[in-house]
């Protein structure tokens, strides 16, 4: 189960979703409500999609567990936090580095989600706290 909690202008919305696609749709609803520019909506959607997908795929091995997504809209910044209770895993240092230079034939695809997140967001941090992995990504809303 995925949960999205969003704080926009002091108003907190929480929704739960069975599927990541629903979560992405929910992000788009927030984007419209909060008046985000198209490129900001794109970035936030991509981070939720990529990091959320990684957490859903890997956090619990073959088991099940919750992945929570928090989106906080502040005056000038936007914060996304993705939280799971799986084994300790810091994707910023432990995920395999992407291959960005090999030719078509040899290029593996993987590690792009974390790489895109680091590149598109201004500040990305990981912490392990109270048995949970918390990945936080912050970007300016002003572009």
């Amino acid at each position: 189960m995925l949960f999205l909690t969003a704080d926009i202008g002091g108003e907190v919305h929480q929704t739960s979703h069975e599927e990541l696609t629903d979560l992405v749709s929910a992000v788009e609803v927030l984007a419209a409500a909060d008046g985000w520019a198209d490129d900001l909506t794109f970035k936030v959607t991509l981070v939720v999609d990529e990091i959320g997908q990684n957490a859903v795929d890997y956090a619990y091995g073959n088991g099940v567990g919750d992945v929570e997504v928090f989106v906080t809209s502040c005056a000038e910044t936007l914060e996304i936090e993705i939280v799971d209770s799986g084994e300790p895993f810091d994707p910023l240092t432990e995920a395999p580095a992407p291959d960005l230079t090999s030719g078509i034939e040899d290029r593996p695809i993987g590690g792009l989600g974390v790489h895109l997140t680091k590149s598109l967001m201004e500040d990305v941090t990981y912490r392990r706290e109270s048995g949970k992995n918390r990945l936080k990504a912050v970007t300016s809303k002003l572009g």
């Binding site: 490129d39 230079t101 790489h115 895109l116 598109l120």
Partner: peptide, 15 residues
């Protein structure tokens, strides 16, 4: 522009 940026960041524009 956003899609173009994602392709560039991923190094796909080189292949």
């Amino acid at each position: 522009e956003s899609i173009r940026a994602v392709f560039k960041i991923s190094g796909f524009d080189k292949i």
